[in-house]
Amino acid sequence: MFLARVKKKVVATEKHPAYHGKRLFVVKPVYPDGREKGTDNEWIAVDYVGAGIGDIVVCGGAPGVAKEVFDLELAPIRTLIMAIVDHVDYRDI
C-alpha cells in the first residue's frame, strides 16, 4: 500500500464491464509530508471510498482483492483507493 494524492479524474465511456459505475483517478505517490515521489510516478486507481481531487489517500491492492470488495466474477482491477487520510503522524528519521 502507498500514500498518494488524487490528481485528476479519468473520464471514459467505453470500458470493461467490471468498471461500469466506477470512478477512476490519476494518483501520484507522496511522502508522509505530502511531497510527491518523483515526477515519473503515476498510477490509475479505482475509487472505493468516495475520494475527491486533492485528497491524500491510501492506495494499493493485491490479486483478487477487487473481486472480493466489489463482489464480481471477474475483476481486472489492481489498484484501489482504500482510504482517505485525515492526517499522518510521522517522525523524521
Binding site: K8, K9, V10, T13, K15, A18, Y19, L74, P76
Partner: peptide
Amino acid sequence: AQAFDTGFAPVNASVVELVDDIA
C-alpha cells in the same frame, strides 16, 4: 487475465478502459 471472459489467459497486460478525457 481477469479481463478475459474465462479469467484464464497467458497475458501480462490487458486494456480495461478507453480514456475520453482526464479532468
